[in-house]
Design a protein around this nucleic acid. Structure first.
Lengths: 203, 203
DNA sequence: CCGTTTGCATTGCAGTTGCAACGTAAACGC
DNA sequence: GCGTTTACGTTGCAACTGCAATGCAAACGG
């Protein structure tokens, strides 16, 4: 094979540029030439690595998901071994919220893709498994948290929905990050019982 | 004035066609000619009533919001006078969920607009007031529901987020409507205390 | 009856889109 | 050395986009 080039690296480079364009101007501004310009390469090169636009989009969507997964696993690993279920949940969910500019940019792209896949059911299927896995994980944590009187599965659905909704409203700028975090904690209080207020979060 | 025509009616007709296009193929497929075709009129007519595409979009966004508001007030009015806070909340939130095909279509459009406005902060400002008003209303209901130990404002934020998140996942087809409704009820149980199970929702 | 205003259709235009086609240069097997 | 394969860059094209401009008919005021 001639001219050995790291195929994945190039694709990642292009997908990165795509993400930047999408975050700043929306998915509809994502075109071959536009992405190429943002990546500082020729349009032909983009076309070389992604034969169609749809292929490029699908790849970018996968990147978004991988980024989120990496973020979560990293945050969880930082908690050390055997953390309390509630702390683990809170860390995980807070990590998924668009609280800083980096995550806001990713969130905008994710939101755009959400609308994108809503019209392309075939692409959306990939997201189902992820949601299902996430729900199972959350339900398991709730179960381990010795919460009584609540169906863990349903509570997991609610909790994940809270996170998603908070993310949406944060992206829209409807309220500041602190409000979202406070609401998340209130939600966890409802589930696990009120915290003994360990000086960490008053008011 | 010659040739009297109901201006608002025409605009509504066009906006309706726009909604159909957006629900089926996404906002990016919304073009002057496309919408005109869907409305069964000429492209020139669309241009006559909306001088720019952005004007058309803004109008359509307003229509979506008005539809939701109308839906909610209608559902609430059907509850009769002085309904219990919890029942009122549940009715209102359930009405906003994309549970049937009609609301799913509207939801897809709303989701598309969400992503649309995420990149156009100027347009998003109109949504803030609506969210704030809704939050105030929900908080007031929670207060009236004699829920102790929870900050009504934060609980309202959480509750609205649950609704939004459930809507997103419903649109994505991640779970069936019953799951979303069950999660909503679980959430209300957490807030108001478990229902005395009035034969309505067991399982 | 005539001018003006309104409602709408058609056409034109510059810009952008995805994508195919073609070109070339480099690296490898032989 | 040569042919083949990979990695691009360039060009071309048909389709589409928003929008301005133009045309025309109908309805009204005068």
């Amino acid at each position: 094979m001639p001219k050995r080039v790291d195929h994945r690296e190039r694709r990642a480079l292009i997908a990165d540029a795509l993400m930047r364009v999408a975050a700043e101007q929306g998915l509809e501004a994502v075109s071959l030439r536009h992405v190429a310009a943002a990546a500082g390469v020729s349009a032909g090169m983009v076309q070389h690595y992604f034969r169609t636009r749809d292929e490029m989009m699908t790849f970018a969507l996968a990147v978004v998901r991988e980024r989120n997964e990496a973020r979560v696993t990293r945050a969880i690993r930082a908690l050390g071994a055997t953390p309390a279920p509630r702390a683990l949940l809170r860390t995980m969910l807070a990590e998924l919220l668009p609280l800083d500019e980096e995550r806001r940019a990713d969130g905008r792209v994710a939101l755009a893709f959400l609308a994108y896949t809503a019209v392309r059911p075939a692409v959306a299927a990939a997201l189902h498994d992820e949601t299902a896995a996430l729900l199972g994980f959350i339900a398991q944590l709730i179960r381990a948290g010795t919460v009584e009187g609540v169906d863990p599965e349903q509570a997991a659905v609610g909790l994940l929905a809270v996170m998603e909704g908070l993310g949406i409203y944060l992206l829209g700028g409807h309220y500041p990050p602190e409000t979202a975090l406070a609401a998340l904690d209130t939600q966890l209080d409802l589930l696990f019982g009120p915290e003994p207020s360990p000086a960490g979060r008053g008011r």
